[in-house]
Write a protein that binds this DNA or RNA. Structure first.
Length: 362
DNA sequence: ATCCCGGTGT
DNA sequence: ACACCGGGAT
């Protein structure tokens, strides 16, 4: 990635091109017809995680019902939630209401006009504070949302993957530079509008893009590859050894600890091994020994694979013969049950899968 | 049906 | 890091 964004003249030209485009091509949206910071704040909160078309009718109704921040502050939470009903993410409404009350209490009913004071409102993070302070108050504060990530990642061919801290930091750095100058609110909105209307995730219409001549990805035909996909979290390999002990046609199950993986579920006794550890019958034998049971662990085993969100499990199922001794665990933590009965208990789906195969095998 | 996405708060 | 929660894509 080049450092073009440090070239002042180049940057000024890009900036101007964005502003010109926004002036002529912006959608006519209700919150663009006001300079009331309260209304702009409301729109930004509603637009978090919610589409423009969905928000529009709610925005009108809400402002009609609560025309000023004082009206909102004085309303009951019930009233506020009723107006919000259907928009989803109801926590936003509760925080909005609380923030309105703090505007009344701490700012004398006047919507705060500095970035820091706006940022301190409940439910307002860096993005929303930047949006309100630039759009409503003309402050040179940047915004970086999902659209801006995409637009800037393409213009500058930022190599860092979606969701990475590096991509986010680079975008804020560039946006902070770009926002300095005339009409910072319009500049911010132009980036987001471009992302929404032109620089779309797929099939961007680069022909219509004001940043076309500035865009490295467009030059290289790599638009759709930016931002690069999120690095998938490494799936943790997990080796599991389970022992099947039979006594009078029943098998022994134990209950897992109340915390962590499969908390509180019933399971065959066994041992979880991290990647790198080698399964051995001794390890399984030890587990039984610690429960007070001496067993003969078969060397042979059946193998079962199971995938969870962040783990790839491989289960080695061993028969454990001739159990001797008395189980030393608390009585509530173990039970002898038939395979059928086991299916009725709380077991994980991998346990269910394994139990089902045991049932078929017998 | 199942993944992927995203501002903020925790 | 994850939960919130709903929408859209596949």
């Amino acid at each position: 990635m080049s450092e073009q964004w440090e070239d002042i003249e180049w940057l000024a030209a890009l900036r101007q091109s964005m502003l010109d485009w926004f002036t002529h091509q912006q959608r006519d949206l209700p919150w663009r017809r006001t300079n009331d910071p309260y209304a702009i704040w409301l729109s930004e909160i509603m637009l978090q995680q919610t589409r423009v078309e969905t928000v529009i009718p709610y925005y009108h109704r809400f402002l009609e019902r609560f025309p000023t921040v004082c009206d909102l502050a004085e309303a009951s939470q019930e009233d506020v939630l009723a107006q919000w009903s259907g928009l989803g993410y109801y926590r936003r409404a509760r925080m909005l209401h609380a923030a309105a009350q703090s505007v009344v209490a701490e700012h004398d009913c006047v919507f705060p006009s500095t970035f820091e004071s706006i940022l301190s409102l409940k439910g307002v993070g860096r993005y929303t504070a930047g949006a309100i302070s630039s759009i409503a108050f003309g402050l040179e504060k940047a915004v970086v949302d999902g659209n801006v990530h995409r637009v800037l990642a393409r213009i500058f061919e930022i190599p860092h993957p979606r969701g990475s801290k590096q991509l986010d930091q680079k975008c804020w750095q560039i946006a902070d530079t770009l926002v300095k100058g005339d009409a910072p609110g319009d500049l911010n909105q132009s980036l987001m509008e471009l992302g929404a209307m032109v620089c779309t995730p797929r099939n961007p219409t680069c022909m219509l893009c004001p940043a076309r001549e500035f865009c490295q990805a467009q030059t290289n035909g790599t638009q759709e590859t930016y931002p690069h996909p999120k690095v998938k979290k490494a799936v943790k390999q997990l080796q599991v050894m389970w022992g099947v002990t039979r006594r009078r046609g029943k098998i022994l199950l134990i209950r897992r600890p109340q915390k962590g993986l499969f908390a509180g579920l019933w399971e065959l006794p066994g041992v979880y091994l991290d990647a790198g550890e080698t399964p051995s019958t001794e390890k399984l034998q030890d587990v039984f020994a610690q429960m007070g049971l001496e067993v003969d662990v078969d060397e042979s085993f059946t193998s079962h694979a199971h995938t969870l969100t962040h783990r790839q499990m491989t289960i080695h199922l061993h028969k454990c013969k001739r159990p001797k001794g008395k189980i030393s665990l608390p009585r509530k933590e173990w039970c002898w049950v038939t395979v059928e009965e086991a299916m009725e208990l709380g077991v994980s789906s991998i346990s269910r899968k394994v139990l089902l195969q045991m049932k078929k095998a017998t």
